[in-house]
Design a protein around this nucleic acid. Structure first.
Lengths: 206, 206
DNA sequence: CTGGTAAGTAATTGAACACTTACTATACGA
DNA sequence: TCGTATAGTAAGTGTTCAATTACTTACCAG
């Protein structure tokens, strides 16, 4: 990762260090667990002393905020992209579902991070941003579902709000089960099966 | 909660104290958050000193284990009961779904506790028990789904494993969203809508 | 009534941790 | 080439917390 092959002497700009810290925290989030990450851990992984971390972030909380920012920009833009590239709204839904599953499988630190936030009763800034993300996500889904209904791809009179809740919920459930199993290895395969069932749910009206 | 109206002098048996501690921890799990609960918190809520807690549990981890034990026995037996009381397998599925949603809404400390566990990468004893619970849960669902298929209540050739995954996943997603929203108030209503969609998924075959 | 078991207290211990401070030294623009 | 802004170090500081220890006292069986 950070090869000491080159005698890369320290002294990097705050911007690059911040990016390194965010990256390191995402990795540690998977290997150590977000609740157990210490500033010593972060520093050691970067080959710095603990105090140096605070040259780039004023508090530990500020680091978490930067990390959720990274997730927000990377995940949402990826989902928007695959939705836009899909030939039909329903294909878009499938693409989003699978992309989301693959993103989480590739970055297991992300669900860990979120679970750690949700475990707190307080409405932390990180939680607020996560909620904002979910709202953007819902908007994307509602747009796709509405268009799908127009094109006759889903049942007329579908409970679209409920369908959006189930869509996101199914993915969150897959995360949950992956974390419980301790591995994201089977996640993509299970996502495929679950989405097939989801399609039945939205295509047929009660 | 623990009225000093009666001059209920201390000195209770370990069994009752253990039960009190488990109950207190479940409450604190919602109000303080599982990750932030300290033995001082527990003791203060029971009107004891911090050291007294360790007369009844050898370590803090032992307390968590007792709490997950409480959840396991209460939740699973309640689900078995409503499933058995239902007139048809499909009605059983609905009863289980709604009962589960109501249980979580009534005990918000429970999902918090689980999220806190899932945030850890290590395979803790608590996590193992939660996994055991999920396996029992899956068995119950598979039984209901198989019978439902026999009675023609669900599509022949249904992907039952996937349907079980989606069933549990949908509920876990509802927990997730409730924790993100900071309240379990709307959970039962959303569960109803989501289950209606779930029915479509399992009744129609692709 | 009485002796021992065990529930309780009060104080302490030692480790961990986020954050600070005083100082050093490197990169870089003028 | 020099001056300065700032990334980095090393050594704290104060706090929090789980667990322990030595001691006290309530309850119950014989």
């Amino acid at each position: 990762m950070n090869p000491s092959t080159t005698s890369t002497r320290t002294r990097l700009s705050t911007e690059t260090r911040q990016a390194e810290i965010v990256d390191t925290v995402l990795n540690l989030s998977d290997s150590v667990g977000p609740g157990a990450i210490t500033t010593v851990d972060i520093a050691r992984n970067l080959g710095l002393t603990q105090g140096a971390v605070f040259k780039h972030f004023p508090t530990k909380d500020a680091i978490w905020l930067a990390v959720i920012g990274w997730v927000e920009s990377h995940l949402l833009s990826a989902l928007d992209a695959v939705a836009a590239a899909a030939p039909t709204p329903l294909a878009g839904l499938q693409a989003v579902f699978m992309k989301h599953a693959r993103f989480v499988a590739k970055h297991p630190g992300v669900p860990r991070l979120i679970f750690n936030e949700l475990q707190k009763p307080k409405d932390t800034p990180v939680k607020r941003r996560a909620r904002g993300m979910q709202e953007s996500y819902r908007k994307l889904l509602m747009r796709l579902l509405t268009e799908a209904e127009k094109h006759g791809e889903v049942a007329a009179g579908l409970d679209r709000e409920g369908a959006a809740t189930l869509f996101i919920g199914a993915l969150q459930g897959l995360m949950f089960q992956a974390m419980l199993a301790g591995s994201t290895a089977k996640m993509e395969a299970e996502a495929r099966r679950v989405f097939a069932l989801y399609l039945n749910a939205v295509r047929e009206s009660s």
